[in-house]
């Protein structure tokens, strides 16, 4: 079931498209990046050294890798969710769902393997891209940075947790359009909640409102916190300078594990109750 889900995702074309784009970016970077002949810890881009400013005590190589990781992880994640959000509703289509449900597998197994398959499809893209960049850095620049690879592992885990939301919406609405839309809205929602002290708190000075925001933050997968922390696997976060946490924190992953487990359980419960 997991394998078929990946295959279905591939055959729908979108994942293949991202895969191709990923390849082009890797090749482009392989061509453009080099190290400065004078200073081996200085990376050059088309011969121009990259001289990051205001990065505190962050290693410049780490800085470049963090930038790359942040932009690629968030874009693959976002586009990946577009590519696979429809996989849950497509399992529930009339004429197909009956076939799945007539098999001895439990509905929970069906649903979870579908979600894991969808996440694995995106994870394959992520890991392929990560290994590509990692090899470019290793072979061309002789920078073998294990943390860079590891950080993508955390991104994959973050995606699986994040996908619980998409799964739940897919089960309830049975609509691919809704699932994609909601996934998109949720990414904004998650970063807004993450920085709620700076923005959402200011909208309304009310304790109940603020507590509600806090509760929401903890009961939903903390996508944006997880992504930030996956970057911190590479090295110290240089930005924003006033931000306290510069080093990796596992807690958002723990909270998200719990909340996404609860959301997956809720989705399974809904699925088990439904008639088809």
């Amino acid at each position: 079931m997991i394998l078929l889900t990946i295959r279905e995702a591939v055959l729908r074309g979108t994942l293949v498209f991202y895969f191709a784009v990923g390849n082009i970016i890797i090749l482009f970077l392989a061509y453009a990046l080099d190290v400065s002949p004078e200073n081996p810890s200085m990376i050059t881009f088309f011969g121009n050294p990259i001289l990051p400013k205001n990065i505190g005590d962050t290693n410049p190589v780490d800085f470049v890798l963090i930038q790359l990781q942040r932009s690629s992880a968030s874009s693959i994640l976002l586009f990946g969710v577009f590519a696979v959000a429809g996989l849950i509703p497509s399992m529930l289509e009339k004429g197909t769902v009956e076939l799945y449900l007539s098999k001895p597998l439990s509905r929970t197994t069906l649903l979870l393997s579908r979600a894991v398959g969808a996440s694995a499809g995106v994870a394959l893209n992520l890991i392929y891209f990560a290994v590509g960049i990692w090899l470019v850095f290793g072979i061309k620049l002789s920078i073998w940075h294990g943390g860079f690879l590891l950080s993508f592992l955390f991104v994959c885990i973050a995606f699986l947790f994040y996908f619980s939301i998409v799964t739940f919406v897919g089960i309830v609405t049975k609509s691919a359009g809704f699932s994609i839309m909601f996934a998109f809205v949720y990414t904004f929602f998650s970063s807004a909640l993450e920085s709620r002290t700076k923005f959402l708190y200011q909208i309304w000075n009310n304790d109940i409102y603020r507590t509600t925001l806090d509760v929401l933050y903890y009961i939903t997968p903390q996508l944006s916190a997880m992504l930030d922390n996956s970057s911190r696997v590479i090295g110290k976060m240089p930005f924003p300078p006033e931000q306290l946490a510069q080093t990796f924190d596992i807690l958002p992953f723990v909270y998200s594990l719990l909340s996404s487990a609860a959301i997956y359980a809720l989705a399974s419960y809904q699925f088990a109750k439904q008639d088809f």
């Binding site: 078929l4 009339k94 007539s102 098999k103 001895p104």
Partner: peptide
């Protein structure tokens, strides 16, 4: 009981395969 589905075959009406 899952064993019902283990021992049965089903041809749904309007079935759709991938």
């Amino acid at each position: 009981s899952p064993s019902i589905r283990e021992r049965s075959g089903y041809l749904p009406e309007n079935h759709r395969y991938p």
